[in-house]
Structure formats: structure tokens, C-alpha cells
């Protein structure tokens, strides 16, 4: 894609609207919440630059189809699954992550596979802080003594899914939430499986997205293509 095409790709509201709309089920945040970060355009541009505008377009197409077919991101092919994770990480932290080396190689990226913060303004807009009802370190302070208050009650997974479905409801009706293909463990919560938790940072120089999990993933890769 030429620079001119790249500019055309991100110009105008329609492609950005589509990007935001498709990021809603990925992130679990409504379009209003995504727009509230003020970062939609920056993330669209950053993702396009990092994985290539063509690859981003292709990814959005594959994801749109899967989503409309009622499938969650865990049913995506390996590369698209990792791209979904990268976009979610970008929305959740304001930083573009280090991705799986296999995906990095497949994309033939011309940039280092290293985490970086998209802008000084994006870090405080990370959705991870909203996910647990907190605020980013060093920004949006909640006021003297508020740290003594009980942590807020958070919406349940079902409530979040319902909000998104309400927003998604187009001419064809809402897409049902297939909890399993979003990796849901059900509402029970409990202790988090170790392979989904970060292990120790072997040194402070390791970027957050490069921190290995506390244990390796229990299931070995089964080709999703074969599984479908």
C-alpha cells in the first residue's frame, strides 16, 4: 500500500467507525467507552502502521465475518488471534505489544517486535484501569483518601455481553454472545488459572507484554482451522 493509499485508508469517519465497532466485542467495552478514550484514531493509525494497513484490513474482514457468525476471537486462525490480542492490548494499555514471534515473522514486519507506548496521552487512557474500577498510575487521580474506599462493584460478564449486544443490534438482530469462544470460565470467578497470570519479571527491563505466564498453557496448539 502506498502512502497515498494508507492516507486514504484511514481518512474519513467510515473506516474509523468500522474499526471502533469491531473493537467493541474484542475489548468488552462499548463504542461509547472506546470513543471516550479519545484514542480511536491514534490506535487505528498505530495498528495500521505496526501490522501494515493491508494486514489490518484483512484482519478486520476475517474478524467481522467470525463475529457475525457468532464466534469469538479464540476461534480465529493463529495469526488473526494474535492480532486480536495485540489490538486488545493496545486498547487496554495504550501500548502496542511484543507479539508472538511466529506472528511477527508471518507479517514480515519491518519494525522491531518490541512494546512501545503509542503516545504520552494513550497510557492514561488504557482500559485496563476501567476494567477493575481503578485509575491509571500518575493520571486521573480520584482524590484524597479515596484509596480507603471499598473497591467498586463491577458489571458481570453477562451484563457486559448484554450491553454490547444491545449496541450491536443491527438489521439482522443482535449477535448472541458465545461465552466459550471468548474464553469464558463462567461467572464463578475463583482462583485464576496460572497460565493466564503473569510470572515474575526476570528483570525490570522486560516489557510487560514480554513477561512469560506463571505457567505454560496447559493445552497444546490444536489447529483451529481443523477444529472448525
Amino acid at each position: 500500500m502506498t502512502d497515498h493509499e494508507a492516507a486514504a485508508h484511514s481518512a474519513g469517519p467510515a473506516p474509523l467507525d468500522r474499526f471502533v465497532r469491531l473493537c467493541v466485542p474484542l475489548t468488552g467495552f462499548t463504542a461509547y467507552e472506546l470513543r471516550s478514550t479519545g484514542m480511536a484514531q491514534l490506535y487505528f493509525d498505530t495498528a495500521g502502521r505496526e501490522i501494515g494497513h493491508r494486514s489490518l484490513d484483512a484482519f478486520l474482514g476475517v474478524w467481522e465475518e467470525a463475529h457475525q457468525g457468532g464466534l469469538g476471537p479464540s476461534r480465529l486462525p493463529a495469526l488473526e488471534r494474535e492480532l486480536a490480542r495485540a489490538l486488545i492490548y493496545l486498547w487496554y494499555t495504550g501500548a502496542f505489544p511484543r507479539i508472538a514471534p511466529a506472528a511477527h515473522a508471518e507479517l514480515r514486519r519491518d519494525r522491531p517486535n518490541q512494546e512501545f507506548v503509542a503516545s504520552p496521552e494513550s497510557y492514561p487512557e488504557g482500559l485496563v484501569w476501567r476494567a477493575f474500577g481503578g485509575h491509571p498510575a500518575g493520571a486521573k487521580p480520584p482524590g484524597f483518601g479515596t484509596w480507603g474506599d471499598e473497591p467498586p462493584v463491577l458489571p458481570t460478564e453477562a451484563e457486559l455481553a448484554a450491553r454490547i449486544a444491545a449496541e450491536d443490534a443491527g438489521p439482522g438482530g443482535a449477535v448472541a454472545y458465545d461465552a466459550g469462544s471468548y474464553g469464558s470460565a463462567g461467572e464463578s470467578g475463583g482462583s485464576t488459572p496460572a497460565h493466564l497470570l503473569p510470572g515474575p519479571r526476570s528483570s525490570r527491563a522486560v516489557s510487560p507484554s514480554a513477561v512469560p505466564p506463571a505457567s505454560s498453557h496447559p493445552v497444546r496448539e490444536t489447529s483451529p482451522e481443523a477444529g472448525e
Binding site: 486521573k140 487521580p141 479515596t146
Partner: peptide
């Protein structure tokens, strides 16, 4: 704390 909450709510709406 309430004023800071207002600030956050307002900024989100404007965006």
C-alpha cells in the same frame, strides 16, 4: 473526589 469524578465524566463525553 466528586470534582475529579466530574472531570473524568466530562472528558469522556466530549471525546
Amino acid at each position: 473526589p466528586l470534582m475529579l469524578e466530574l472531570r473524568d465524566l466530562a472528558q469522556r463525553i466530549y471525546r
